[in-house]
């Protein structure tokens, strides 16, 4: 079984976000492997342990993302592909096109990815990728079973569980609850630095910067307004209701 896992390096979920020149400031921020992608890596490793095969992780990003790659390799992935090219860091469209080009060069039975990244939370890349590769996808899964080429997954459907079937090759995205990711082991850390890591550029993938240029441009990046102090309404019930309705209409404009 050839398994590909798409990963992304994201900010630590504990990180304090600050802005500089209209962009999120990266200085002094800890980076981690996106937690949803950690579920995807874990699931790939479990399948490999049960059924044999190879696990390849693929990511797009600047040199710093290599740390996330090493984490996945230390957990037990076999090899990695790192697309490092300024022109590849566009929007979800760009990343999906670049990943598709890289993955088309490989043979694969199963592609795993996180349901979303904890930074921008768009949840688009993996699904777009399945579309580009013209394979089925099952998103936000909490359970995965593979028998031969038959795939049965349970997916989180707004609080209910939906059971979806597909046949390989298929792309699935991991939701919280799918598994409990292992820690990398120390032996894994030691071996990670010796595992094959292929660096690619857009040129290596036969892509031109123009063809994969971003379709969406952020107009403005801003932090949410600081949360103000609460206000306790005073007076009798009628007065408080009146005041509450006025607040909802005029201040928060929800009515």
């Amino acid at each position: 079984m050839n398994i590909i896992v798409c990963i992304k390096q994201t900010f630590d979920t504990e990180a304090k976000i600050s802005l500089e020149n209209g962009a999120v400031k990266e200085d002094g921020v800890q980076f981690i492997l996106n937690p949803y992608d950690e579920y995807a890596v874990e699931e790939a490793l479990k399948i490999k342990e049960e059924q044999g095969g190879e696990v390849t992780v693929v990511t797009v990003g600047p040199a710093r993302v290599e740390e996330a790659i090493r984490t996945a390799l230390a957990m037990g992935a076999d090899e990695a592909i790192h697309i490092e090219d300024e022109a590849a860091y566009g929007d979800e469209y760009t990343i999906a096109e670049v990943l598709a080009a890289a993955i088309r060069q490989k043979s694969y039975d199963l592609i795993l990815a996180g349901n979303q990244a904890v930074d921008d939370g768009s949840g688009q890349v993996a699904v777009r990728l399945a579309q580009l590769l013209d394979i089925a996808h099952i998103s936000t899964i909490t359970k995965l079973e593979i028998h031969g080429t038959q795939v049965v997954a349970e997916r989180d459907a707004e609080g209910d569980t939906e059971i979806a079937e597909a046949s390989l090759p298929v792309l699935v995205t991991a939701q919280q609850g799918l598994n409990e990711p292992r820690y990398p082991s120390l032996i894994g850390i030691r071996k990670a630095s010796k595992k094959p890591l292929t660096k690619l550029t857009l040129a290596d993938l036969g892509l031109s910067a123009d063809a994969v240029g971003r379709k969406v441009t952020p107009v403005e990046v801003f932090l949410p307004a600081a949360k103000g102090a609460g206000r306790i309404l005073e007076g009798d019930t009628a007065m408080r209701v009146q005041e509450l309705v006025r607040e909802l209409r005029q201040t928060s404009k929800v009515l």
């Binding site: 984490t71 230390a74 820690y183 990398p184 850390i189």
Partner: peptide, 14 residues
């Protein structure tokens, strides 16, 4: 080294 840094990160997380 890269390994020592990765180990620190792992043990801190653990």
């Amino acid at each position: 080294t890269e390994e020592q840094e990765a180990l620190r990160k792992l043990v801190r997380d653990f």
